[in-house]
Design a protein around this nucleic acid. Structure first.
Length: 883
DNA sequence: AGTATCACG
DNA sequence: ACGTACGTGATACTA
């Protein structure tokens, strides 16, 4: 491209944009503003702007921090100019590498700030007749505006990044003077963040006025005697004349840096696809890989090459399994459909597809494989175990699950699928593999690829196993892993397979009752609001309540008015529509989430509901339940509780038995903190909330009022979560000060608890993690954060996780014990549900008493604590009846 | 895909 | 001074 074509050059202030991304993330997110996230933010900004602005060339400028800034030439202004935090600066090399791979021109020069380089480039561009868009978050750069140069100012407010283009006209409109006078303004008013002193005593207001009156710094000093300058200001200007001069110089961007860059002949961008793909993969920026259309021949994994062997002959297959019985551990990849298996032992991966065998043979192969004689290692074994159970095959011989191990080693990850864990443990990128997809295993094409891919997956399982198994030992989690989590995996598979019987007709009837009332409410609400709108839309509802009906809006969310229960209850008296909306909300929740939601997941096969218990989701060690979630079936309101009538024993020969722990988390707290008073309260079998109230208020137990008990109950809960006076006040409706007093009184009553809360935070900070009584760990990098919110969150987590997590460990132990004992005693009762502190069995009526006793005993004996565990069991036809 | 809301322990 | 309880999952709406 020669000089006669006008080029558009985009010049980006690398330091400014990177910093902005970093602090933007930090400010908003609950999570640590990870430096790599900032790199992500930078690249996202770069991509977006290039799409919007479509520049012909892009240049990114960086400060060279280690070298001298021009500030340092002034002894009097020993600059402590804010650079970037070290952790962020550490990301600069990889970011520069990425820019190079993209073919974007980079520019840096010792002793010069990015500002100066940008100024210089924009001047040269201007001289060449090119246009220049300066991208920065730094308002100082606005002085560069003029000629062909505009500034695109990037700012982040509440996580929203906004872009504003400034040209001369826009600048004048905003500031009332020419861009170049920004320097004069700085010279007068200074800039604390940039360490520019300005004229001491002159602030923004005065400086603006002076510039307005006299046009420039020079103009001001040429007219010091002018009557428009007040006496005080005149004295300050006289005293600060030298400072003003220095500041002027400091604030001026150097547009004549000795830059080698040939701005007139910037090279066309040439992208190094392979390098870019490798970098973005390493950074885990999958979005960008997709966006840029990079495919990249996948990087060679560090795993050894494996032989693959296809087996299609039954005799050969049984022979292989016989051989594996004698061999060491076998690393298996098996889909949920059980339609294929890949078995890795030593250097050979054997691949078998169900389609190649007679049904009876395949069934026999599965039985042999899972007969217990072969030691199997799988990744995420539960779905396979459940599928086997559904076929009537007992899944024995699973000696290790790499997914469970990865979870125990770091329970805060967002997922543990094999490719992700493989990447983390052995830097291996796994090829796509979908053995559930019949096309992938069809003889038509890609079968060899499938074999290869499957072998790689099995190889990854082995590599992860080798690393993870030893780390489990090292971190003292052997018992937790082999005696709790791994046996539990099998038990959960059984619970899922058994499922829970339901009464769908009753549920439908309940749904129809709800519907009738919902329609009445809709009609009334429309009348109240004098018009139809979508009540389900918080946005429309907010507009109706707070604009149309002019109700007071007590709270806002980041997108508009808040309309949640707290808010609506506060304004319930002000307008009859509000209570109707509250009722509408309650009923539609029950209808859509529970009635409709549950009906949708009743199994066609057996008419039961089979939830999925997730064993690798929570950061604390609890289980979770999905598709459907049976751990949040309503109980707190009478109407919602009706839903529990649909969870039933399958017939009149059976019952449900429900046992729950009494106050397990507080008992754990008493035990861990060794608080003598709290332990004693539990030992003597007192109502803990009332007992707490008696102590806190210094009254006899029989004089504790319901209000006193209720407040103490709230604090007891709050303590477990890592309380603050603000949230307690919110919860029990007192002033913050009163809540603060209350917490003090509480902690004085239970000094052991107070000490525990301090100690655990200290300990967690030193070690970088907290653990439960059974050695389950959670890392807490948040405690080292400089961000108050993030750090505070870390402290609350440090206080809560050992408690919630130990309680989770305990009920898991109870589940293993209950399961074992039912088996040992030859009972038919089956565990079907767990709801954090509650276990539910389906039992033949003939076993009712036995099973109730067994359940209570095993739950209470799961762990002997100084504040003893207490569990109460009840039986009934439905879940509703077990209360 | 992200937000708001609300169900549970 | 900061902004505010811990852990989940499902639904409907909005962009």
């Amino acid at each position: 491209m020669m000089g006669n074509t006008r080029m558009k050059i985009m010049v980006i202030d690398g330091n400014s944009i990177l910093n902005r991304a970093f602090y933007g993330i930090r400010q908003l997110s609950n999570h640590e503003g990870l430096p790599t996230n900032a790199v992500y933010g930078f690249l996202a900004t770069l991509f977006k702007l290039r799409e919007d602005e479509k520049p012909d060339r892009t240049v990114v400028c960086f400060d060279v921090r280690e070298k001298t800034f021009r500030h340092l030439k002034f002894d009097s202004y020993k600059a402590t100019r804010k650079g970037m935090p070290d952790e962020l600066a550490a990301q600069l090399p990889v970011m520069k590498e990425t820019l190079d791979a993209m073919g974007v021109v980079r520019c840096e020069l010792a002793g010069y700030e990015a500002d100066d380089l940008i100024g210089t480039i924009s001047r040269k561009a201007d001289e060449n007749g090119d246009t220049c868009v300066v991208v920065t978050g730094d308002r100082d750069s606005l002085q560069l505006i003029g000629g062909g140069t505009t500034v695109l100012l990037v700012s982040t407010k509440m996580g929203q990044t906004t872009y504003e283009t400034y040209d001369t006209e826009k600048f004048r409109e905003r500031y009332g003077f020419d861009p170049i006078r920004l320097i004069d303004l700085k010279a007068l008013m200074g800039d604390a963040s940039d360490n520019i002193p300005g004229v001491p005593g002159i602030g923004e207001k005065t400086a603006m006025q002076l510039l307005h009156d006299f046009g420039s710094l020079e103009g001001v000093y040429a007219n010091l005697e002018d009557e428009k300058i007040k006496k005080g200001a005149r004295a300050k200007l006289e005293a600060g004349a030298q400072s003003a001069k220095d500041s002027y110089w400091l604030a001026t961007i150097d547009r004549n840096a000795p830059l080698a860059l040939d701005v007139a002949n910037l090279p066309e961008e040439h992208r190094d696809e392979a390098a870019l793909y490798e970098l973005l993969t390493r950074l885990e920026f999958k979005n960008f890989i997709k966006k840029l259309g990079l495919s990249g021949a996948y990087t060679a994994p560090r795993l050894p090459e494996l032989r693959t062997q296809r087996i299609q002959n039954a005799a050969e297959a049984f022979g292989l399994l016989d051989a594996l019985t004698e061999a060491g551990r076998v690393f298996a990849v098996i889909p949920e459909t059980l339609g294929a298996m890949c078995l890795l032992e030593a250097d050979t991966a054997a691949m078998l597809f169900a389609d190649d065998f007679a049904d009876a043979d395949w069934d026999a192969l599965l039985r042999r494989l899972f007969g217990g004689a072969i030691e199997l290692v799988l990744h995420d074994a539960k779905p396979v175990a459940a599928a086997l159970l559904a076929r009537g095959i007992q899944p024995e011989g699973i000696v290790f699950d790499t997914c469970l191990a990865a979870y125990l080693l770091d329970p805060t990850q967002s997922g543990y699928d094999l490719p992700r864990v493989a990447l983390a443990y052995c830097s291996t990128e796994l090829p796509e593999l979908d053995l559930d997809d019949p096309a992938a295993v069809s003889p038509l094409g890609g079968q060899e690829q499938t074999e290869q891919a499957c072998a790689r997956h099995a190889g990854a399982v082995r590599a992860i196993y080798q690393e993870a198994a030893s780390r489990v030992e090292e971190l003292g989690m052997r018992k937790l892993y082999y005696e709790i989590e791994l046996p539990l995996m099998r038990i959960l598979a059984e619970m899922e397979t058994v499922g829970c019987a339901v009464a769908p007709d009753e549920l439908r009837a309940f749904g129809e009752r709800l519907d009738v009332r919902i329609h009445e409410l809709i009609a009334q609400i429309y009348r109240d609001a004098d018009g139809e709108f979508n009540i389900n839309s918080p946005k429309q509802l907010g507009e109706v309540l707070f604009e149309k009906l002019h109700l007071p809006a007590p709270k806002k969310t980041k997108t508009g008015y808040s309309t949640n229960v707290d808010v609506l209850e506060r304004i319930a008296e002000d307008h009859p529509v509000v209570p109707r909306i509250l009722e509408y909300r309650q009923l539609t929740k029950l209808k859509s989430t529970y009635v409709d939601g549950l009906l949708k997941v009743v199994s066609q096969k057996d008419g039961r509901i089979h939830t999925h218990f997730q064993q690798t989701v929570t950061a604390t060690g609890r289980l979770s339940s999905t598709d459907p979630n049976l751990q949040n079936i309503p109980v707190r309101t009478e109407l919602g509780r009706e839903l529990r009538r649909m969870f039933v024993a399958p017939d009149t020969e059976h019952v449900l038995i429900d046992a729950d722990y009494s106050q397990i988390e507080l008992r754990v707290l008493a035990h861990i903190s060794q608080d003598a008073h709290m332990i004693e309260a539990f030992r003597s079998g007192q109502d803990i909330h009332a007992a707490t109230a008696a102590k806190v208020y210094h009254v006899p137990l029989d004089e504790v009022t319901p209000q006193m008990r209720s407040s103490c109950k709230a604090v007891n809960f709050g303590i477990v979560y890592g309380i603050s006076d603000f949230s307690l006040a919110q919860d029990i409706g007192v002033t913050r000060k009163e809540a603060g007093e209350f917490i003090r009184a509480y902690l004085a009553t239970y000094p052991g608890v107070a000490k525990y809360m301090e100690d655990i935070k200290e300990n967690a900070r030193e070690k970088g993690y907290v653990s439960t009584l059974f050695g389950r760990r959670r890392a807490l990098p948040e405690l080292k954060s400089k961000n108050f919110n993030i750090r505070s969150f870390g402290e609350r987590v440090a206080m809560n996780t050992p408690i919630q997590g130990t309680a989770a460990d305990i009920i898991k132990i109870a589940m293993v014990r209950v399961h074992d004992r039912l088996l040992r005693e030859g009972l038919e009762s089956r565990l079907i549900l767990q709801v954090h502190d509650e276990l539910i069995l389906e039992a033949p009526k003939t076993e009712q008493e036995t099973a109730m006793r067994l359940l209570k005993e095993e739950m209470e004996a799961a762990f002997v604590m100084d504040a003893p565990l207490v569990a109460e069991a009840k039986a009934g036809h439905s879940w509703y009846d077990t209360k």
